[in-house]
Design a protein around this nucleic acid. Structure first.
Lengths: 202, 202
DNA sequence: CTTCGGAACTAGACCGTACAGTACTCGTTG
DNA sequence: CAACGAGTACTGTACGGTCTAGTTCCGAAG
């Protein structure tokens, strides 16, 4: 189905995503969205009953986009010699993915509205965050079974992996308006994080 | 000085802090603040030229409250036998301090407005976040000099310490409206984090 | 202690603007 | 032609900030 109605619907979703990410929930007006979608306000209301519904829709839609990160985290080769290298590469890609301005803005948007829309924050945490952690946990279980890692508690190891890598750069990004990290920074975070991780879990 | 004017000023600051933390910047009206402070709107504007100034003031005022956490992190006894115990205790207190609902709400408030008030986010990051990290770095340098730890890069170790402990619980709290952590959860996070930390840095 | 004057405060009306959501008319597209 | 959509005017409300008219506090002078 690619009817006119479908196309409008899509245009509205995209426009809404852009504007909400850019200006946040409160400062985004339905007129802004209609204008950017090149659609009349009436049409917006034909497709989405009100502003809250539209917001919920676009936030939940973004949980799909996490699949790339999931794949990333699932595909670590079991290669004894290259383990550190492979994990560092994973770490590097993980960092790149999670410090994308769009991703940071999305995090900000959801966190900012976590008290107003608690079910949204919770849903995003479960379907985004925890899915990645679960996949990472499975990966560590596998690597442990293959004797490459020693993780008594693979879920805890997955938490630690993420924390070692992400705490500093993600927080920096969250508290600053514009991006803060050079490629070299990310390289250093990845290498340092993996060194500590392997010291603890190999 | 405890003049009437001073008292009103203080009442306004307190009321503003409460309401901003509760409802966020946009959804807080100056009438709300005036009402809670039991003060007329005119008086609010006599003390603070506009809403933005008032907001900036209350956010910057909170950076002072971090001193407790700084002290916490500075005072780790140099005791070879009890090192793990001492660090776990520190970790536990660190976790408790940073998962306080008020602290989480403040984080949310600042992050939510980091794009609208970039200088506020940056200031809070530097004067809050980085000051704690610097103190922790100094502590690890000291413990390394005393042969209790082995941190080539004490600043990186401080980053890792925080990340191991805080990534999961703080994120959980940020994405959910109300508190999520039992005492037992915090105990587990502290013990697990310190075990990994010592494996990497002892 | 009383009185007086000015500064600070109160209560609420008021202005301008922004915005969610609706209504209506006219054009366009399938 | 029939449904959909554009454009736009409109309604009701909320809010930042100002204004006015009267009230309370407080220190100093008599």
């Amino acid at each position: 189905m690619d009817s006119r109605s479908e196309r409008k619907h899509q245009a509205i979703l995209e426009a809404a995503t852009t504007v909400f990410l850019d200006k946040g929930y409160e400062r985004t007006s339905m007129d802004d969205i209609a204008k950017l979608a090149a659609v009349s306000k009436q049409t917006v209301y034909k497709h989405f009953s009100d502003k809250e519904k539209l917001f919920a829709e676009i936030v939940l839609a973004t949980t799909d986009r996490i699949d790339g990160t999931i794949d990333l985290v699932a595909d670590v080769p079991a290669d004894a010699d290259g383990l550190e290298e492979n994990l560092t590469k994973l770490a590097r890609q993980f960092l790149t993915a999670l410090t994308q301005p769009q991703v940071i803005q999305l995090r900000r948007l959801i966190i900012a509205n976590a008290d107003r829309f608690p079910q949204l924050g919770a849903a995003w945490y479960e379907q985004g965050f925890e899915r990645v952690l679960a996949t990472l946990t499975a990966t560590f279980e596998r690597l442990t079974a293959q004797g490459l890692l020693k993780t008594d508690d693979p879920m805890l190891a997955a938490h630690h992996f993420s924390g070692l890598l992400l705490w500093i750069p993600v927080n920096r990004a969250m508290f600053h308006g514009s991006p803060q990290h050079s490629e070299a920074d990310l390289d250093r975070y990845a290498a340092g994080g993996i060194r500590a991780f392997l010291a603890a879990y190999r």
